[in-house]
């Protein structure tokens, strides 16, 4: 238990700092790299939560594919690769206020609802096999819908971005 808590604390600190750097850094490429840190931290959290399959998927899809896409997007739009002075717009202080208030509200709600609820010890861990069975039995319709969505996104992205 202690080890888990220590791991969690380290992860949380790293993720929090990296997340803040994602939205404050002056360098687009650095932001993407900090994003990798956050995403990897999330994957580690999944391991901590005994969700092995999601952790692997997180690494493959988020870190492998999505961050790569974002870097390509940065390159193709010739965003300033080095330091850029104005990456923030003029409402950033309002945004800070709104975000902090939102955090306050969320925190209050969570503290109120799950103040000292513990995760069940020795809970029944859902293995990859269980996830697979569930997807192809109970949730097969949403699964098919998602596949159609991905196809639509594929076609849509090609149609939107191609030169004609």
């Amino acid at each position: 238990m202690v080890a888990q808590n220590v791991v969690f604390g380290v992860l949380a600190a790293a993720m929090g700092l990296a997340a803040i750097r994602v939205v404050t850094t002056k360098n687009v490429v650095h932001a993407a790299l900090y994003l990798v840190v956050v995403l990897a931290g999330v994957a580690a959290l999944y391991i901590l939560l005994a969700a092995e399959f999601i952790a692997v998927v997180q690494v493959i899809i988020y870190i492998g594919a999505i961050v790569l896409l974002i870097l390509f997007g940065t390159m193709l739009t010739r965003a300033p690769i080095g330091r850029a002075s104005d990456l923030d717009n003029d409402q950033r202080w309002l945004a800070v206020v709104v975000s902090l208030l939102l955090l306050g509200v969320l925190g209050a709600v969570l503290a109120d609802a799950y103040g000292s609820t513990k995760l069940p010890k020795g809970a029944q861990v859902q293995r990859t096999g269980d996830v697979g069975l569930s997807i192809f039995q109970t949730y097969v319709i949403p699964f098919e819908v998602v596949s159609v969505l991905l196809l639509a996104a594929l076609v849509g992205a090609v149609v939107i971005a191609r030169r004609d």
Partner: peptide, 9 residues
Amino acid sequence: CVGVYGVLA
């Protein structure tokens, strides 16, 4: 909330 800040700012 950090993400929201990023989207807004």
